[in-house]
Design a protein around this nucleic acid. Structure first.
Lengths: 155, 155
DNA sequence: CATAACTATATTGTGCGCAATTGAATTGCG
DNA sequence: CGCAATTCAATTGCGCACAATATAGTTATG
């Protein structure tokens, strides 16, 4: 608790820098959302719905639980979201015969077709990012690491 | 549109890498939210409410508009949020006498006092991040740049 | 002065996001 | 077999987040 002209700042810098990181993450997440919104609107998808579809295009027929773990969402969020996707005829929900607690989400033909459209969306965002692929990859890894550190500290 | 063995990947890599950046930002934002939640609960604040308070601790008496611009939120989000902060006796809302369209948000004594508590919260998060200040600063700047690029492309 | 254009905030409706609860199905153990 | 513990999904309640709209106040223009 002695005076340390340089390090005495760490507490102040702590709240300030941290605050700025708060704003930065918060703002970046919303900016992403806003950038996608107009591109997804013609497809009739919201951004979280797009993320779910992305997960399904990667692997079709996943149970709700698996999607939830991949995206970090629980059933309270996914259940109504998936119902809307079902209403839009993009996915179907089928109970597993062997374990009827599970509901498998599978793409309809319409949902599978949409992947091609979505690739245009993704590439449009890629251009907006400036296409610095190395930079994007580095950022992605930094964010993953950040998430891990936060998760292990609080979860 | 010719074959370019290397660059023909850019479309595939595009959706994949982009998808991963989506997940990364999305997940990091939620991870931040979850990390803060248990720390803010004793203060009776949600994470967005904390961000608003942070803005007010930095500069008291800001009009709603200024807060909204700082955080990237509109009145549809802020109006009810500020009412809850007012109900909790953390802020007050006063109309500007010179321009009665504006509502200035000012801290109550209780709201001002809370800053000290919040610094503990911020430093706890700082520790959870591993305190790599350089790294945090770099990440913050990368996110700010990212946000700017997205904003200029879509806004 | 009057009226149009603009600005700041509030309201409404839809869709996340999560905690807590519920309910059905499965598994484990005696 | 019978019963408790567990698992998965759905539901409920609350709080963001934003588009669209409404309302009141201000400024600009004739």
């Amino acid at each position: 608790m002695q005076k340390k002209p340089k390090n005495s700042d760490t507490q102040n810098v702590g709240i300030s820098l941290d605050g700025q990181l708060c704003f930065a993450i918060y703002g970046a997440a919303h900016a992403f959302n806003r950038a996608y919104k107009p591109l997804l609107e013609p497809l009739g998808l919201t951004y979280p719905q797009y993320l779910v579809m992305l997960a399904l295009w990667e692997e079709d027929g996943q149970p709700v639980k698996a999607i939830g773990e991949r995206l970090g969402l629980d059933s309270g969020t996914l259940s109504p979201l998936l119902k809307r996707l079902e209403q839009a005829d993009l996915v179907r929900r089928k109970r597993d015969r062997k374990d009827e607690r599970q509901v498998h989400i599978s793409l309809t033909p319409k949902g599978a077709e949409m992947k091609a459209q979505a690739e245009h969306v993704a590439s449009a965002i890629g251009e907006a990012l400036g296409c610095g692929l190395d930079e994007v990859a580095a950022l992605r890894d930094a964010l993953k690491a950040l998430r891990e550190r936060l998760r292990s500290a609080s979860g």
